[in-house]
């Protein structure tokens, strides 16, 4: 049996294909974009090609993420909260708290035995999300991917006091005009993101092990800022973007086993690999 998880995030779409022994047969990451959302099937096809499998060989497909209801070929939709909890638990069995920072939201997740216990999510605000870094990259004329390395050189990080993405840009420009070194500004920025997210996740009582996921976890400066503020090490998966899709695939596998035990059909509907029809 083969299982797929497809995680359509606000910025990136991720697919993971697993076999019964939890071996990852395919792992695809591509931009979501305006058109890509209509083309979840293309990403799926790419994953199938990588796995060397046909669509018909998929036993269960679970969709998650912001665009989970736009996947007509999925058997079920599961929230990204449960999927991250499951995926991270497989990679880090001792994880208790997951902090996921994506393109448009930040989540705190408490997990036990692979199950979602409690969660918090940011409100309708870009501060403390990947968007905050994207906007800053534009302001500075840099690539967001460079931020982490540059900020690690900082010796005197500045305080970015404003928690609003728009006003923080003013502060950054002000610091630049005063001749403050870029690495110190970026270190301040990372510290501001960590502070903002931690204050939200604190509602859940942050217990180690803490695992950082989502695109922002790729930024070494942000990881360092989290460790400084929390006072202990945090763990980052090798590929922090795919934990949602991975969890979805595992949940698919587990549900298949459950259904088999109960003697129920595993896939309840006819699946067709096609794009979602929005109108009509």
């Amino acid at each position: 049996m083969y299982f797929a998880g497809i995680d359509i995030g606000s910025t990136m779409t991720k697919v993971v294909v697993l076999d019964e022994g939890n071996a990852v047969l395919a792992q695809i990451i591509g931009p979501t974009g305006a058109e890509h959302r209509r083309l979840a099937n293309k990403v799926m096809e790419e994953a199938l090609l990588q796995a060397g499998l046909s669509f018909e060989q998929m036993t269960v497909i679970i969709a998650t993420g912001y665009g989970r209801f736009n996947v007509p070929f999925a058997d079920r939709q599961v929230s990204e909260l449960s999927c991250h909890a499951r995926g991270v638990s497989m990679l880090f069995p001792n994880s208790r708290t997951i902090i996921d920072i994506g393109g448009q939201d930040a989540k705190g997740i408490k997990v036990k035995n692979g199950k979602l216990l409690e969660f918090v999510m940011n409100d309708k605000c870009a501060a403390g999300t990947g968007r905050f870094l994207e906007v800053t990259a534009k302001t500075l004329g840099l690539r967001m991917e460079e931020f982490g390395e540059i900020s690690l050189k900082s010796t005197r990080k500045v305080a970015i006091s404003n928690i609003c993405t728009v006003f923080a840009q003013n502060e950054i420009i002000d610091h630049l005009s005063k001749g403050i070194a870029l690495e110190d500004i970026l270190a301040g920025l990372h510290s501001a993101i960590a502070g903002r997210v931690i204050s939200m996740v604190k509602k859940l009582n942050i217990e180690p092990d803490v695992v950082l996921t989502g695109g922002v976890a790729k930024n070494a400066g942000v990881v360092k800022a989290f460790e400084e503020k929390l006072g202990f090490c945090v763990f980052v998966p090798e590929e922090p973007l795919i934990t949602g899709a991975l969890g979805a695939a595992i949940l698919g596998k587990e549900s298949a086993h459950e259904y088999l035990l109960e003697g129920k059909p595993i896939s309840s509907k006819e699946r067709i690999l096609k794009e979602v029809a929005f109108y009509g």
Binding site: S82, K115, L116, F119, M121
Partner: peptide
């Protein structure tokens, strides 16, 4: 409404 949907779905899963 869709951000609320994610939260409610996750809550029901818990």
């Amino acid at each position: 409404l869709s951000p609320l949907k994610t939260r409610v779905q996750a809550f029901l899963e818990t």
